[in-house]
Design a protein around this nucleic acid. Structure first.
Length: 515
RNA sequence: GCCCCCUUCGUCUAGCGGCCUAGGAUUCGUGAUUCUCAGUCAUGCGACAGGGGUUCAAAUCCCCUAGGGGGUACCA
């Protein structure tokens, strides 16, 4: 059929942001192009001048870039098959239209919108529901045309559809499908002002840009039929088509603003890791393998085939997306975690990033297994930076132990005399900041009694034994005093990170308010 | 109305006539780890839309029904 380099495109109209469905279409085209070793290009379908905007275009481009979908040709990139904006290709459409006019595949239609509407009403009655163009201008004589021209009417150009041709088409996703062209009416290709309509511009451009595979939403299936006829009329080879099912919401209905963010950039701004969103979207209608859901862009490319896209619609499930986000967050190194969370860490003074990088990494790492989004660290580490107010759960934990006040006072004294790191950021030097909170795997040799959380813990256990308190009971009021809440990292990570001054201060403050 | 497509655990899916007492992931339940939460590990609940065929054999092929989606523009 077509023996040339595979060339695929994503052709958004800049009339709104890049939404989930569009992103998936772009993703599949991109993956197919990469998998086939071909080119992926972006074409901007901006012929709807009333709704198109430069701002939308930028949002779409930013969304694609964020997802890691790069294009070989298109806006801000150029290429040998441009221009890549349809409004800059008007002469090409005119040219193609003239050819179709000459070959009889197209004809001028002088109907006004009122006349079309009236014709539609009639048809509706006659053909029981069919609403389309009645074909009044399909067979106008030269004389009749001249008469309309004399009235000053400017014609639309319509494509002359075969009257009842059974088209047997093969769709890469849907398989073999039969469509009778009687279901379709003569459609407008070109307006009097020379601006083309979708089906016409699309085909002229797909020919001009040597597109070999068209992957798009199933709402275009019937357009695909019209377009095949147009390829034929223009004597051009027809690309492969693949029409993929739409993405639905949790209830199986059309996805709306209520169900999910409609703008990819919202996911960016909310702190979703782009590789997780990429991974999740790819799975909406396609499977990587029978027993694996997590994969990289490269792995997807090596496994992807258009024929592997499913025929049934899939639902967007934010829960699984969130799970996937967490999976990715957990894979990062401590340094990467901080770096990626930084845009949301306004609560952290800049000096901490520069002077106490090691400490910050340790602090962030404490929550790496407890968050899904990059933005969620910020809300977790507040207690480390300023003495927190106690929440209800923390107050309850304190109140539960009658002797807690005394425990806190005594433990404060223990810590005060211990060789504990000083508090961040104000009390600790840069040298200390190099101390790395060890993971369980590679515990280093301790330098002194409280070099590691494990050392602090050992000392604490000894202390509780000495005062005859059950360790498990002791821990909760201490956590409450130190963090202001009842959940979070291990208590001795807390003590280690918080440092001596802050620990002593908070323990005594809590003891005071308790008694 | 008419035309096209779809239908496997709640969700994403594997399965393309025998490997299926239907596999994985997520969610949920339980247990373990333990100073809480999270994570991790283990374990459990959970599906072939319904009805007819074809076949030695059907989740897999055919038909009907139901449900869902899409289309039916001087939008894309």
């Amino acid at each position: 059929m077509i023996h040339q380099t595979p060339r695929l495109r994503f052709a958004p109209s800049p009339t709104g942001p890049l939404h989930l469905g569009g992103a998936r279409t772009a993703l599949y085209n991109w993956a197919a192009a990469r998998a086939l070793g071909g080119a992926f290009l972006l074409r901007i379908e901006d012929t709807d001048q009333a709704r198109s905007s430069a701002a939308s275009l930028q949002i779409i481009l930013a969304g694609l870039r964020w997802l890691g979908i790069d294009w070989d040709e298109g806006p801000e990139k150029g290429g040998d098959y441009g221009p890549y904006f349809q409004m800059e290709r008007l002469p090409l459409y005119r040219q193609a239209a003239d050819r179709l006019l000459a070959s009889g595949h197209a004809y001028p239609c002088y109907c006004t919108s009122e006349e079309i509407e009236a014709g539609r009403k009639e048809l509706e009655i006659q053909k029981a529901g069919f609403i389309g163009y009645n074909g009044r201008c399909r067979n106008l004589s030269a004389k009749e045309r001249a008469a309309f021209e004399q009235q000053g009417r400017k014609p639309n150009l319509r494509f002359r559809m075969p009257e009842a041709r059974v088209m047997q088409v093969h769709d890469l996703v849907r398989g073999d499908v039969e469509v009778n062209t009687k279901e379709l009416d003569d459609w407008v290709m070109l307006r009097p002002d020379g601006v083309p309509l979708y089906n016409f511009a699309c085909v002229v451009d797909d020919i001009g840009m040597k597109i070999t595979h068209v992957v798009r939403g199933e709402e275009h299936f019937l357009n695909g039929i019209k377009q095949r006829l147009l390829f034929e009329a223009l004597g051009a080879p027809c690309p492969f088509f693949a029409h993929i099912p739409l993405i639905l919401n949790k209830d199986g209905k059309k996805l709306s603003k209520r169900d999910a963010d409609t703008n990819m950039l919202d996911y960016r701004d909310k702190g979703f890791p782009p590789e997780a969103v990429f991974n999740y979207i790819a799975l909406l209608g396609w499977g990587f393998s029978a027993d694996r859901d997590l994969f990289t862009r490269e792995e997807m490319v090596s496994a992807f085939a258009i024929e592997g896209i499913g025929k049934s619609g899939s639902r967007f499930d934010e829960e699984k997306l969130r799970w996937m986000c967490g999976e990715y967050v957990r894979r990062w190194s401590k340094a990467e975690c901080v770096q990626r969370a930084k845009p949301w860490l306004q609560v952290v003074p800049e000096v901490v990033f520069t002077q106490h990088a090691g400490w910050l990494q340790n602090a962030i790492a404490c929550y790496q297994e407890r968050v899904a989004l990059m933005s969620e660290f910020a809300g977790k580490i507040g207690w480390l930076l300023a003495d927190p107010a106690m929440d209800e759960a923390a107050k309850k934990n304190l109140a539960k132990e009658p002797a807690a006040g005394q425990w806190l006072r005594d433990y404060a004294s223990v810590l005060e005399q211990a060789n504990l790191p000083p508090s961040y950021p104000q009390d600790r030097s840069e040298a200390d900041a190099a101390v790395d909170l060890p993971s369980k795997k590679d515990a280093p040799q301790p330098r002194c009694r409280f070099d590691t959380p494990a050392q602090i813990e050992a000392a604490c256990r000894a202390f509780t034994e000495r005062i005859g308190v059950k360790f498990g009971n002791f821990v909760h009021p201490v956590r409450a005093a130190l963090t202001g809440t009842d959940k979070g990292p291990g208590l001795f990570d807390v003590v280690f990170l918080l440092g001596k001054q802050a620990c002593v201060r908070r323990l005594r403050a809590a003891a005071g308010s308790w008694s």
